[in-house]
Amino acid sequence: HNLTITQGKLFFHYNPKLCLSEIHKMEEVSGTKGRQERNDIALKTNGDQASCENELLKFSYIRTSFDKILLRWEPYWPPDFRDLLGFMLFYKEAPYQNVTEFDGQDACGSNSWTVVDIDPPLRSNDPKSQNHPGWLMRGLKPWTQYAIFVKTLVTFSDERRTYGAKSDIIYVQTDATNPSVPLDPISVSNSSSQIILKWKPPSDPNGNITHYLVFWERQAEDSELFELDYCLKGLKLPSRTWSPPFESEDSQKHNQSEYEDSAGECCSCPKTDSQILKELEESSFRKTFEDYLHNVVFVPRKTSSGTGAEDPRPSRKRRSLGDVGNVTVAVPTVAAFPNTSSTSVPTSPEEHRPFEKVVNKESLVISGLRHFTGYRIELQACNQDTPEERCSVAAYVSARTMPEAKADDIVGPVTHEIFENNVVHLMWQEPKEPNGLIVLYEVSYRRYGDEELHLCVSRKHFALERGCRLRGLSPGNYSVRIRATSLAGNGSWTEPTYFYVTDYLDVPSNIA
């Protein structure tokens, strides 16, 4: 807008934040220059609390790290170098490059900038070799853009010569660093050979998330399962459950009422301010606690030095998902009996873990797994792929695949051998790939016309006998059925096997 004052003059007093240069501009645009008398524009009460600059400061050096910015700028000295009290560095987070010096300023003089007072450097006698002032900004957020400017702080001049310097606002972004852990990993099994893994992005990506790394490792069953005799009275049979499938998407929606109208769909109840505040506090606490764990609990591995020492970490090797089922080394339970199943799973520490690289999504279907087997899954978020990966501390989750139908069934015939004193040795093959492992066998036998009897055969007993022995049988026709019990439950009964026990007292003698 054009402003013209045809008559009258300007009068400025007691404006401590208004620089004289701005008042002189007002004289020019209003056409009143030359009308004012000496005392109409006070030299001592206008701009006496402001830094009124008329020179431009330029930054000469900028260096960044993930949490620091090192700045240096060209030296500046007023005509009387004693008038320079120091520099004021202003900075704040700036997602967009549209910041002005006066953003967030209120009537009390406060604003949204963080201000650092910096002492002037030592003055050199040689004007050509003056030290460049600077400042190291610490405690910054990774991968965050900051708006920065600097200006001088000078003393009051009796001659009211307006001098000083100020830089333009520059924008500097800190470097990326390792992201925080992925949030809320959930693993479920939808079949006997697959596990579905879902997660949420890290709360602090500290860069642009480029991919996720998912490692999985087959877990050995508890050692007590191999040692305890679950045929003993009072000892509860062990059981394991597989990871249940995901709930429906509708039930997972946030901010939804727990109660549904019987007449149909209901609208979600909005969260109160107290609920939102509580969630923010919980989120802040979780982030602080995660940072504490990362800094205190997890110790970084030592990389190899120039002395030739090897990095103890196993090298990563990509495998196809079809090879995942046989990740671990199978060892027989008892070496003397080769027909026992290889369900003991000690994992070799030198073995390469299978892994998958996930790009542009937060889910993965891990296939080719062994049925009813526990897996430990390790999830890392990465925001750099080359020249070397920059990934987060791992988040861990466990899951067990679903049982395989008929995996616990005894394959092959049940054979028998009759000894003296009416002892019958029953023999059968253990299931080759049971659900988890076989903890015991149930032997059901009966003599024709009598009630059915049951015998429990422990895992250890089966390994020693290759089956079991029935003792003290009365003469007669017998039928026997056997079924295995694994961590997933009972298998199917075998087809009945028949044998006849004679009275050993009636056996004919070869003595003449």
Results as ranks from 00 to 15, higher is better:
Asp261Phe: 14
Lys302Phe: 14
Phe462Ser: 07
Leu321Glu: 10
Pro238Phe: 06
Arg481Val: 06
Gln275Ala: 09
Ser304Arg: 05
Asp250Val: 08
Glu452Val: 10
Lys357Gln: 12
Gln256Leu: 12
Phe289Met: 02
Val214Gln: 00
Glu404Tyr: 14
Lys460Arg: 13
Phe289Leu: 03
Pro300Gly: 09
Cys266Leu: 08
Ala463Asn: 07
Arg301Ser: 10
Tyr441Met: 02
Arg370Val: 07
Thr241Asn: 12
Glu290Tyr: 02
Arg301Asn: 04
Glu351Ile: 04
Ala220Pro: 06
Asp408Trp: 06
Gly476Thr: 01
Glu433Val: 12
Lys287Met: 02
His211Gly: 11
Asp250Ala: 11
Gly449Leu: 13
Leu455Trp: 06
Ile418Glu: 06
Pro475Arg: 11
Ala336Pro: 13
Asp506Cys: 03
Glu433Pro: 02
Phe499Thr: 01
Asn421Trp: 14
Ile366Asn: 00
Gly264Ile: 04
Glu442Cys: 03
Val334Arg: 10
Gly306Glu: 08
Val334Ser: 11
Val296Thr: 07
Thr343Gly: 10
Phe419Pro: 01
Phe499Gly: 15
Leu225Ser: 07
Glu290Trp: 02
Asn477Arg: 10
Gln275Pro: 02
Tyr504Gly: 08
Ala484Gly: 12
Gln256Phe: 15
Val414Gln: 06
Glu452Arg: 08
Lys236Met: 08
Leu237Tyr: 15
Trp242Gly: 09
Ile418Arg: 11
Glu433Gln: 07
Glu281Arg: 15
Leu237Arg: 08
Ser479Thr: 11
Tyr441Leu: 01
Thr485Asp: 13
Ala330Met: 09
Phe337Asp: 07
Leu379His: 01
Asp222Gln: 15
Leu437Thr: 00
Glu227Gln: 09
Tyr230Met: 03
Thr272Arg: 04
Ala381Gly: 04
Glu362Lys: 11
Ser243Met: 12
Tyr292Leu: 02
Arg318Tyr: 11
Asp291Met: 01
Ser474His: 13
Arg313Lys: 14
Glu258Val: 06
Lys460Trp: 11
Ser320Ile: 11
Arg319Pro: 10
Thr333Phe: 03
Asp385Gly: 13
Leu369Pro: 02
Leu213Val: 02
Arg319Phe: 10
Ala336Phe: 15
Lys287Ala: 05
Leu228Gly: 08
Phe355Gly: 12
Leu232Asn: 15
Val358Gln: 14
Gly467Pro: 01
Thr303Val: 06
Thr347Ala: 07
His461Trp: 13
Cys269Val: 03
Pro354Phe: 09
Arg218Lys: 08
Tyr212Phe: 09
Glu388Arg: 08
Pro431Leu: 06
Phe215Pro: 02
Glu249Ser: 09
Val297Ser: 02
